[in-house]
């Protein structure tokens, strides 16, 4: 696992250098999709088995871990510098979370339908393309 992490971090740094984009952009796209693969698999299996609350619970739970635990672990080892360019993404993330919170107020229903799913995926593509 240690080698795996080394490969990923080194790869991210050198890909960022090669394409002339910042490390933060690479980490927000390639690294985060790669390290989220276990969540993706768990979530999709849970939905196919029709255990939808397990799927959403897994997503929201791992979000809380990602937001609290990762910066915490990093900062406890050594204080980490925060790049101001992350603020845009942080606000975007907050907006999506708030949208989900008020989701049922708008439409009197609590189901995320296929249409929403398509919009979510398109929004993700748009977000990634905005980053570059």
């Amino acid at each position: 696992m240690k080698f795996g992490a080394d490969f990923v971090v080194n790869g991210a740094v050198s890909i960022a250098e090669y394409f002339g984009v910042s490390q933060s952009v690479i980490s927000m796209t390639i690294v985060s999709v790669g390290t989220s693969l276990p969540e993706i698999v768990t979530c999709i299996i849970a939905t196919i088995k029709k255990e939808s609350d397990l799927a959403i619970g897994n997503v929201i739970g791992s979000n809380i871990f990602n937001i609290c635990l990762l910066p915490a672990i990093g900062a406890v080892i050594t204080p980490i510098h925060y790049d101001l360019s992350f603020n845009r993404s942080l606000i975007f993330l907050l907006l999506i979370t708030i949208y989900l919170l008020v989701f049922d107020l708008f439409r009197n229903q609590r189901t995320i339908t296929k249409h929403h799913g398509v919009v979510f995926v398109l929004l993700f593509c748009l977000y990634v393309s905005c980053l570059f």
């Binding site: 980490s27 985060s32 997503v59 937001i67 993330l93 799913g117 979510f120």
Partner: peptide, 21 residues
Amino acid sequence: IIIGNSIGSCICNLLLVMGVA
């Protein structure tokens, strides 16, 4: 990479994972 991964994973979870699911 830490902050990027932390925020990026969350956005990926909400939009991509929940979207596909």
